[in-house]
Amino acid sequence: MHIQAESEWDDPGVVAAWRRWRSRFADQTRGFTEALLQAAGVVPGMHVLDLASGAGDPALALAKAVGPRGCVTATDISDAMLAIVSDVAHQEKIDNIGCRRADAAALTFPDESFDLVTCRLGIMHVPNVTEALRESRRVLRPGARAVFLVWGGSPAEQGAFLHHRILARHVEMPVLLPNAPGPLRFAAYGSLSAALRGAGFRQVEETTHRCVLSCAGPASELWQSIREMAAPLRHLLAGVSPDVRERIHEEVETALQSYSHGERIELPATVHIATGLR
């Protein structure tokens, strides 16, 4: 998932978009979830803490993996997003998952509470990332593992970011400072594992995975889901003229269509997964 400021996550339009497109996004990013679960070594009976759970990935998949003897606590800074997780769990009859509002850098759980901590596409957006990693380590039982998945490589390698390159031709894009919260904060290989070591984790490992974001349906629908779910993008597009906005839509849809394979659009994606033991 992509983390925005707390007020943006609670924006009714953003929340409605995540409800609308949740299952589609879960399908697109299934490879990320599978890679994270494999790296985590999930087994039945585990008690898992998932950080920045958003609309439920990977928390819902984790709940299925740990089985009825295990449990998952899904956390996020937005109650509205957690409500989506709760509703989906109810619909799918997943009763071993609980939702709790939490700041990753100030967890309220007791020491040594969990067998596993996970975070998929979230840790790079946390402002106080050092404290968040220390908190993750604190709530783990001795010898237990934390697993973090982040975007890797350069923007040019990421099909999911192709609209950024198009937007830059039409509007002034925000400048991200080095090490500031943002999607590519840990894109440099080794930077995330270094942060884990700095937070006290041991036996730290980092691997790179090249995946495919496989998206069913036309390019126009995929672009609609992207721009509706990302609050900063919604705001950016709202500030341009209708003519410019229409040109951006046309260029992005054409670019996405170039990745079409039959009835699906398959975008290349690179992620890093870093793991460490308490």
Rank of each mutant, 00 (worst) to 15 (best):
S86N: 11
D115V: 07
P232H: 05
L236T: 14
M173C: 03
Q203D: 15
D243T: 14
G70V: 02
I248G: 04
G45Y: 03
S225A: 15
D76G: 09
E253N: 05
G56D: 02
A80Y: 01
S154W: 10
A168P: 00
V175G: 01
V212Q: 12
H90R: 15
I248K: 04
P155Y: 10
G152Q: 03
R245Q: 14
R19I: 07
I265A: 07
I77Q: 06
L49K: 04
E228C: 09
S258G: 12
D95T: 11
H170A: 10
G239S: 15
A230S: 13
V252N: 04
E131H: 08
C71R: 15
L116Q: 06
R247D: 13
S225L: 06
E266A: 14
G98N: 09
A216R: 13
Q224F: 00
N179K: 12
G56Q: 04
I248F: 09
D87L: 00
A188H: 10
I248R: 05
E131F: 01
G41K: 03
H2Y: 12
V212R: 15
V126S: 07
R120K: 14
A219N: 09
I84K: 00
T29W: 06
D115P: 08
H261Q: 14
E251F: 07
G159M: 05
E228M: 01
P242A: 03
R278K: 14
P155G: 05
G159K: 07
D57K: 07
A5H: 13
D95W: 13
L176N: 12
R197K: 11
C119F: 04
E135R: 04
L121T: 11
W151A: 11
Q4F: 14
Y259C: 05
D103Y: 07
G152Y: 04
A26Q: 13
A55N: 06
E206Y: 07
Y189R: 15
A146C: 07
H164W: 15
L184N: 07
R141M: 10
L177T: 12
Q4W: 13
D10W: 02
A80V: 00
A132Q: 01
A146E: 06
T270Q: 13
N179V: 01
T33I: 10
P142G: 06
P183A: 15
F148K: 05
V129A: 12
L192P: 03
V171N: 08
S193E: 10
D50P: 04
A194H: 09
C99T: 15
P58W: 09
V72Q: 03
D50V: 05
L49N: 02
Q224W: 02
L233Y: 11
L192Y: 03
S7P: 00
A231C: 10
T275K: 04
V14A: 08
I123D: 02
S214R: 14
I273G: 02
M46N: 02
A61H: 11
